[in-house]
Design a protein around this nucleic acid. Sequence first.
DNA 1: CGTCTATTTGAATGTACTCAAAAGCGGTGG
DNA 2: CCACCGCTTTTGAGTACATTCAAATAGACG
Lengths: 194, 194
Amino acid sequence: MDFTPLFHNFAKHITLTKTEEKYITSLLDFKIIKAKEFLVQQGEISKQSAFVLNGCLRGYTIDSEGTEHVLSFAPKDWWIADMYSLLSQKPGNLNIEAMVDTEVALISKTNQDLMYEKVPKLERFFRIIIEKSLVAYQQRLNDNLSLTATERYMKFCKTYPQLINNIPQKQIAAYIGVTPEFLSKLRAKQVKAK
Amino acid sequence: MDFTPLFHNFAKHITLTKTEEKYITSLLDFKIIKAKEFLVQQGEISKQSAFVLNGCLRGYTIDSEGTEHVLSFAPKDWWIADMYSLLSQKPGNLNIEAMVDTEVALISKTNQDLMYEKVPKLERFFRIIIEKSLVAYQQRLNDNLSLTATERYMKFCKTYPQLINNIPQKQIAAYIGVTPEFLSKLRAKQVKAK
DNA sequence: CGTCTATTTGAATGTACTCAAAAGCGGTGG
DNA sequence: CCACCGCTTTTGAGTACATTCAAATAGACG
């Protein structure tokens, strides 16, 4: 139940007083999500955002064919939520699942709105966080429009070096947008190419 | 030089006093961008965000093959900027071009930061705007990962009914991520299917 | 009206997918 | 500690969706 990493995260963009930190802490929940368990599942109305204290979550959808598509990995120090469901308060289509046992700080939507009223600085913090996230999604969409599968895989390896050897290959495939079989073949070719 | 549509836009999420409106107006620039002219071009460091008062802009990248990929259309009442370049102050890879003669309200990064200091409510406004934009990009990425070209085209038609008959087909193709030739064939099939 | 660009159509090609089967690997229980 | 089970990864053959290239047609704009 140590929220220090979260306050380090806040400190990257805003400065909080001890009083504010205490207040914010009072609005947080702590939770351990065991590997393969869910924080939220499709069809639910999301009530909270999560900050990963340690471990790793992944957010994915399942399409009409039953295929999984990974929208985001959330390792230590990342924020994750089903923003669509959280904002609209409609059933979402995102599943957020723990890849390993994971500790998270949770903020309910209600408490987050409270926080914004009491500590307006946080409004800025989340604006900045979300701006960065937006840029990342734009970049990734652009990659999906302009790069081949091989290029997307190489870019993934550069961007998430710490994940490559720690997560199943099929989940990298579900992130870059190819079948696991095809990713396997890409890798086989790359090894030969050396 | 009528910024009324912009203040209507603000009013969707926050309430501004007349004084605040006047102050904000003093920080805005007005510009007419003629059809096929650019607001920003790749390689430049972006200095401003744009709000479309009327007309339509499009933001697109050009890949190593010379192919265009449309990241966003910005019709009346939409915000557009090269967020990556604006935030990082590094050369961007986005081109923002007018599809028809277009009137925009411009806010320089400097003035936007000023605005945030003087009218903190705007921090909330842009947080909300950007949250919505983020959800839209997540959704679109998910569509690109899970839908076929035909499905993406049909979804585009539903989402932007007002654009379909007003913009070149090749730019819809560049938005949904197919070649213009292939989109043409898709449409031919759909007509037959009726 | 002529020119330039957008759209259509067709044939050949390629990238990525499907299905199926085998091999590898990690965890669990005997 | 080994054997087995389930899941992931690999490999291969056949297929499909989408691209490339080329040429014809249609539209838009000065």
